[in-house]
Design a protein around this nucleic acid. Structure first.
Length: 591
RNA sequence: GGUCCUGUGGAGCAGUUGGAGUGCUCGCCGCCCUGUCAAGGCGGAGGUCGCGGGUUCAAGUCCCGUCAGGACCGCCA
């Protein structure tokens, strides 16, 4: 090493020692006769002192982010000049030699922890952004998360296996990224949305316990918590049931949380069924950091004269103290709801004396006005929001209102951790509710909610095709503070049941063979019962560092249009590249 | 595909009902300075106000279009 010590490791005990340090000039305070330099490297910061004569003369020419090698003597700081904000604050290094290893041109932004910089600029110079402690710590913490998870899994005798990233296109969920195959012009690889099929093959292969920290690719639109390439901790086990996977998931998460942020997650984690989550919280990823619940008022309003509430479902949620909102704030809710595709957001205000006012109060029947406050459990001064229409859509809207209330009313404890397993997901969802350009598996009325290989729960094993809309799957999600950070299922391992599931989704034997033949073939050779889980690894780290943006936990993230602000990818390719890649090859006539 | 927000020296922001020279903080360059630690003082450089069009005597400001970024809806098993 070019240095004898790490700058951030120096303490009073080193006083008197001559050390050689290397690092970046973080900040300089030039007093003419004495010059202070904050030397920064990965371990931390230490103050270097240059005094009169040649040393000061040369230090005077140092600039921000010059890379230097300094030889000097560790010295206790003079009385009263210690810096309690620095780990090395009791000492400083008196420089006796200075070598500039490299210079730096003027920076596009200051490398300073307490300065805000636009994200655009940060990402264009991400290598400078990462010199700041916040972004750097995020990457280091992510590395720790990886280490801890690997330790848990290795201790449980899991096998880390790499699966292909150039693989077969198997349209099942998200849009895929495609890669032209030079050696077979006209044919294309797909980048995996997840290693789903491969990990199931590894179960057939007798690995029994597989895991992988793996990059996945989905060519879908962005969100604050989505990137086109993202990472999963992918796990699959044989001879297990749902409780075994859940127990393992809890083991990993508790170890990760304890080892990084020092929080001991109480075990077992609570569980809630999908049906309950939707009914009580209007979401399949309920944020249980606050207790607000939806109230089902369908029965209460069954004879209502108010036409808007003459619907299959009417529900309500309370905003505590919401009656004091201004007209403008209440109008704001209407805009907010309309932006989510609702017609509006009906509400009533509960007055100090318990009488109803505002919004739709005057549209309700006398008896309804009298019974409403008790029916929803409101207090004087509250605001009651309503959702009416189809159950799914109305609950989703109220669920979104719930989260928004939590935010606006300050009901969320930002230091809390709330974990919950959502279990008993429906096996299928109706394709009627899907948008026109959705990539549904098969051409049937039903499509898999989780994925096509998800097993029904035992009580539905013999009859899921009789009532696909209500059949429950052995599928589960893990939710942390209202964010889905992982999910999995017990898989179907028998060909006959798989075929039945396919037929509900309108996939006949021939089509199944064409699409998933390699998996179905494998299952003919004694596939063990198996199941697994995949954690959205970026989202796990997002939770740990308490950020809303996935870009904060990715080393070199992409921005909105899939654009990489640093490398400017994607770029056009040359005519030669086009020819070689076979991008323009005419496909053989469709059969 | 849709809705909303933002775009002003290198960075972060301000700029009123349209009105005289676009201002502030930080950084950058030079000089001064022996105890600072987000050092301080003096001086200086640096701006097609994202781009195009329109309204007007006059546009950073109003209107239309467009581009880029962000958030959300759709979409993401």
């Amino acid at each position: 090493m070019l240095r004898t010590h790490e700058a951030g490791s120096l303490r009073a005990a080193h006083a008197g020692q001559t050390v050689t340090l290397t690092g970046w000039v973080a900040r300089r305070r030039d007093h003419g006769g004495v010059i202070f330099i904050d030397l920064r490297e990965a371990s931390g910061v230490v103050q270097i002192v240059f005094r009169e004569g040649e040393m000061a003369e040369r230090a005077h020419r140092l600039r921000s982010e010059f890379v230097v090698k300094v030889v000097g003597v560790v010295t206790k700081r003079p009385e009263g000049s210690a810096n309690a904000d620095l780990a090395t604050g009791t000492i400083e290094v008196y420089a006796t030699e200075l070598e500039v290893l490299n210079e730096s041109v003027a920076l596009p932004f200051q490398i300073d922890d307490h300065i805000e910089i636009g994200e655009d600029t940060r990402l264009r110079h991400r290598y400078l952004d990462l010199r700041r402690s916040g972004p750097a710590n995020n990457l280091r913490l992510r590395s720790e998360v990886n280490r801890i998870a690997r330790e848990v899994l290795h201790a449980e005798r899991f096998v880390e296996v790499e699966t292909p990233t150039l693989t077969r296109s198997t349209p099942e969920g998200a849009r895929e990224f495609l890669v032209p195959a030079r050696l077979q012009p006209g044919s294309w690889y797909a980048l995996p949305q997840s290693p789903q099929l491969f990990k199931q093959l590894l179960m057939v292969a007798g690995m029994e316990r597989y895991f992988q920290i793996v990059r996945c690719y989905r060519d879908e639109d962005f969100r604050a918590d989505r990137q086109p390439e993202f990472t999963q901790l992918d796990i699959e086990m044989s001879f297990v049931d749902q409780d075994d996977i859940i127990a393992l998931g809890e083991k990993i998460l508790t170890a990760v949380w304890k080892g990084t942020v020092g929080y001991e997650i109480p075990r077992p984690f609570p569980r809630i069924t999908y049906a309950d989550a939707m009914a009580k919280y209007g979401s399949d990823k309920p944020d249980l950091r606050f207790d607000l619940q939806l109230t089902d008022l369908t029965e209460f309003f069954k004879d209502t004269p108010f036409r808007v509430f003459q619907t299959p479902y009417v529900g309500a949620i309370i905003m505590p103290s919401g009656a004091s909102q201004s007209r403008r704030e209440l109008d704001g809710w209407q805009d907010w709801a309309k932006q989510r595709g609702a017609k509006g957001l009906a509400y009533v205000l509960v007055g100090r004396d318990g009488t109803l006012g505002g919004g739709i109060a005057k549209n309700l029947a006398e008896a309804e006005r009298e019974g409403l406050v008790k029916a929803v459990g409101a207090n004087p001064g509250d605001c009651i929001f309503f959702g009416a229409g189809e159950p799914d859509q109305s609950r989703s809207l109220l669920g979104a209102v719930r989260v928004e209330i939590g935010r606006r009313a300050g009901l969320i404890d930002e230091n809390a951790w709330s974990f919950v397993w959502v279990v008993d997901f429906p096996m299928f969802e109706s394709t009627a509710s899907l948008g026109a350009n959705d990539v549904a598996v098969g051409g049937g009325r039903w499509t898999a909610l989780h994925h096509a290989f998800t097993s029904p729960k035992p009580e539905w094993a013999d009859r899921f095709e009789d009532d696909p809309g209500n059949a429950l799957a052995y599928a589960y999600d893990i939710v942390c503070n209202g964010a889905e950070i992982g999910g999995g299922s017990i898989r179907i391992h028998r060909a006959d049941m798989q075929q039945r599931a396919f037929s509900v989704m309108g996939i006949g034997p021939e089509e199944a063979q064409e699409r998933f033949g390699f998996l179905l073939d494998a299952f003919k050779y004694g596939a063990p019962p198996h199941g697994g889980i995949a954690f959205g690894w970026d989202r796990v780290v997002m939770q740990l560092v308490r950020t809303e943006s996935i870009r904060e936990v990715v080393a070199f993230p992409k921005s909105g249009g899939g654009y990489d602000p640093l490398t400017a990818a994607p770029t056009p390719i040359s005519a030669t590249q086009r020819r070689e890649a076979g991008v323009d090859a005419k496909p053989a006539a469709q059969r």
